[in-house]
């Protein structure tokens, strides 16, 4: 007997603050529908400001600036609801699936003063720091984008278990929200026949 569903998984390791990790893989050939997606992470503090872009067959489902925490579900939710289920399943057939996870990506935009004096819409070019997706090529594999001063201040000392928030003027953060590196992010794809 072969089941009509499968949870296909991709595992990413985030080793330092601001790291940007790209992956691509193929959907299992025995399944024809991508019905849902979820992310899983060892602790949720790492997610705020981190982003996750996702494409299937080079067509975008999530923009690179889609916040990762929107795809992670807490324990206060029924197990069958711990996924973002697509209202229209995405047809797949050994399809190319691509994703890009960027740690603390949005924090890096907070110090940017190049907008109107009061603020405003952040341009796509600034949000999507690098154009990662280029047809047929893996342009960025594991590169770290340049971390600006603001991000360093926010994300603390970076790699190592002692890392965490180190910003001077900010109130003491909740210890649960500290970011320790490395941590893993798992992408769970819900496939069906």
């Amino acid at each position: 007997m072969i089941l009509g569903y499968r949870f296909q998984k991709v595992k990413l390791r985030i080793s330092k603050a601001g790291q940007r990790v790209y992956f691509n893989t193929e959907t299992d050939k025995d399944f024809t529908m991508l019905k849902g997606i979820a992310l899983s992470v060892g602790y949720e503090g790492a997610l705020y400001g981190s982003t996750f872009g996702f494409r299937v067959d080079e067509k975008e489902i999530f923009d690179e600036s889609h916040e990762a925490h929107l795809l992670v579900y807490s324990n206060d939710i029924s197990p069958n609801s711990k996924m973002l289920l697509f209202e229209m399943p995405v047809p797949v057939k050994s399809s190319k699936v691509e994703g890009i996870y960027t740690d603390s990506s949005l924090q890096s935009l907070l110090g940017n003063a190049s907008y109107n004096p009061s603020g405003g819409v952040i341009s796509r070019n600034e949000v999507n720091i690098k154009k990662t997706y280029v047809s047929g090529k893996e342009v960025v594999k594991f590169s770290n984008f340049t971390v600006d001063d603001n991000l360093v201040a926010y994300a603390g000392s970076g790699s190592g278990f002692g890392g965490g928030f180190g910003i001077g003027a900010a109130p003491a953060p909740d210890p649960a929200a500290q970011v320790y590196y490395p941590y893993d992010v798992r992408v769970i794809l819900f496939l069906s026949k």
């Binding site: 067509k59 975008e60 489902i61 999530f62 923009d63 600036s65 889609h66 916040e67 697509f86 209202e87 229209m88 995405v90 949005l106 935009l109 907070l110 940017n112 003063a113 907008y115 109107n116 004096p117 009061s118 603020g119 405003g120 819409v121 952040i122 949000v127």
Partner: peptide
């Protein structure tokens, strides 16, 4: 229905607490 569902974010930044932000 033809097409597919995508999720499109529009980010905006607030730089001053008293100044309204215009989205355009």
């Amino acid at each position: 229905t033809k097409g597919r569902i995508t999720y499109y974010p529009v980010q905006f930044i607030i730089l001053n607490p008293k100044a309204p932000v215009t989205i355009n």
